[in-house]
Structure formats: C-alpha cells, structure tokens
Design a binder for these strands. Sequence first.
DNA 1: AATCAAACATTCATGTATGTATGTATAAGA
DNA 2: TCTTATACATACATACATGAATGTTTGATT
Lengths: 207, 207
Amino acid sequence: MVRRTKADALTTRNELLDAAERLFSERGVSNTSMMQVAEAAGVTRGAIYHHFENKLDLIHALMERVSLPVDEMRDELRKEHENAPLHQLRERCLNIVHQVQNDPHMQALVNILCHKCEYVEDTLPIHLRHLSGRNECIDECVKLVEQAQAQGSVAADLDPRLTVISMFGLIDGLFYNWLLDTQYFDLMTAARSGLDNYLRGISKQGA
Amino acid sequence: MVRRTKADALTTRNELLDAAERLFSERGVSNTSMMQVAEAAGVTRGAIYHHFENKLDLIHALMERVSLPVDEMRDELRKEHENAPLHQLRERCLNIVHQVQNDPHMQALVNILCHKCEYVEDTLPIHLRHLSGRNECIDECVKLVEQAQAQGSVAADLDPRLTVISMFGLIDGLFYNWLLDTQYFDLMTAARSGLDNYLRGISKQGA
DNA sequence: AATCAAACATTCATGTATGTATGTATAAGA
DNA sequence: TCTTATACATACATACATGAATGTTTGATT
C-alpha cells in the first residue's frame, strides 16, 4: 500500500522483475504492457516507474540478474582446466547448456532474448550488450583453440575464429530450436553429442 | 485512387508484400503498423485490409512467397545426388545457406522470423508452420544419415536424429548470429567450414 | 518530535493501433 | 449497355499504452 522499509522496497523490485521475466517469457516483450507487469506483481504502474525508467530499463535489470552468476562460473572453469584447452572449451559450453536447461532465470532470459524480443532500434542497447558479451566470449575461446593447435590436439590448418563461430552456432542453434519446442529433444543430450561430433571433427586425426 | 484491372490489383498486392517485408525486417513486426506498411506501398490502410485479413495473414503471405522456391530446390538436389547421402546432406545445407545469403526475400524472411517477430500466442500459426517445416526437413535428413550409416560412411553408434538436430543447430545458429551482425563473419565461409568440421566428426574414421 | 524524502497509488492527457463500416469509381460480365 | 462486384479510400468507434503530474503514506534522519 504505502511506503515501507528499504528491504520491503527491494522485495517489491524483485517481485516486479520476477513478474516481468514470467510475462515477457510467456507473452512476449512488446505484447506485455507495464500495467500487466505491475498487476502480476500486485502493485500499480506507479511502482514500476519508480523502480525502472521504462521497459528497456526493466529488461536491462533482468539481464543484470543472470550475467553475474555466468561470469563466476566461467572464472572457476578457467582455473580448473589450466592446461587442457579443448577440454575447457567443452566444459564451458556444456556448463552454459546446463544452466540454460536448469536455471529458470537463465532459461527465461535466453528465451526472452531469443524468441520474445524483437531485435529493433529501440532495443539496440540490449542487443549490443548481448553481442559484445558474445564476442568477448568468442575471443576467449579463439585463444583456447589456438592453444590447442599449439599443443597439436587441433588440426593446424583450421581458422581458429571460424572454428569457434561455428561451434557457438551449434550451441546457439540448439538453444534456439530447443526453446521453440522443449519437448522435441533433450537439450543436454543433443548438446553433448553434437559438441563431441564437432570437436572430433576439428581434432587432429589420431590424436 | 480507384478500382483498377486485376493485374493492377496484383501489383498492389505485391507492393504491399514488398513494403511489409522491408519494414518488418527493418523495424520489427509488432513495431510496424498496418498504416506504415500501407504508406510505404503508396496506398491507404483500406488496401491492406482488402488484400489481407490482418497482420498475421500478411506474414503468412510473406512465407508463401519463399516456401515454393525452397521446395523446388530441395527436389532438384534429391535427384542429383541419388546415392551419396552425406554429400546430399552437405549440398542441401549449403544450398539453403547460399539462398539466405543471396536471395533478398529469403534473407528478409529468415531475419523476420528470427529476430523481428516475437514467438507468442498470436503468432502461433506462423511458428507452427515454421516448426512443422523444420521437422519435416529433419525427418528427411535423418533418413539420409541412416542411409549413410548403412553404407558405412557414418559411425554406426551415432543416433541419427540427434546427429541431424545438432547439424541443423549449427546452420540455424550461424543464421541467427550472422543476421545479428552480417559484418562479423562471412556466412558461406563459416557454414562451409563448420559443416565440414561436423561431417568429419560423424564420419567413420578412415572412411 | 519534526521534517524530509522514499515508496508507492491515482489520475489524466496524449498518441496510436485496430477493425469495421461506408463511400465511390471503375473493370468485367451478361 | 446495364449491372454487379472489385479495388480501393475515407471516416469512425474502440481500446490501450505510455509518461508525467500529482497525491499520500510512512520510514529515516536530526
């Protein structure tokens, strides 16, 4: 009803984020009004516009919630597999796959960015962030492939960047298609087998 | 201005489709109003509602325009490579890639379905059609893989369906990422190398 | 205890999209 | 030639969504 403690305000904010995440993921971003989000969170539009500037700011906040856990995960893996670049590559991919399949927040967000949000001028800041994150990740993986080539475990004649781009394509494509119909195939199983097929294809013969 | 000949009406219809394709692809489906489409085509909204029931019907008509050529292409390839299933698989994929890269209509449509159209309840018929087309295509490719396994050119322990799903993931993922930023990499080059990596991975060793 | 500012609720003005109903000029058919 | 249906244009009713402006209640501060 009224002004509450700071903790209560944070609760309200989180409930707004949860409601937005659910509605956006279910009904699409542009098909969901701020009022619907507010109602689903049990507040009025006034509450939303107090916590967020507009819909874009809301999406931005949604992304903020999951990007941090992902970053942590990545750093851990880097330490674990210091000298096995190909193995690290594999683990990194499968880890993200695992998250998309099992973490509801992650899954909803990928779903939103993938299928529930039009890539238009208004949402450019959102997608630029998406892109820059991806490119950064690609750059890191390119280094891993180069490392693997130096070790002789990956065929030397392959272009590292193209190799990574296709590998990411495979993972992203599986996300894309799986989210279209999560009953059609099991994500983790497909990712594991697909990734292994691909990695086998870029490995040096007999290595 | 006024009523014209049947040929003129068909021209109007095509101009409406062209305008819709361009605007949807540029500004997104839900972000483009029927009036904007009409204006871009040099007519009023009355013309649109005469030719199409609503926005969905418009999208439906857009899909109709490209689905026919794609089907033709597929049938041709089937005849060409009767007894080389793996080769046929490769050619089929690369052919679609080639179309996406070079046919403006095809590219715009994939772009629309991929990035400019929210996958929500309203657009369900559109996406169901998308899905059924994909699944049909997967089924055909599964047969090709089984054929290849029977010939001994593909490892027998692989699940044919999963194998195809991942391969399609690779292609779709490349489409998805390429359309996000067509400058970042060359689609055809990436598809060729990625697909060859993958096919090498599923081929029987030493075959 | 008094004041201030945060955390909302409420209201309103505005713009815009949609669908439909109606009007009209003309091509096509008889 | 007359009629009719087509191919649009115009106008209108309805429905939302947005953002801002304003109001109100309380926690926090001093």
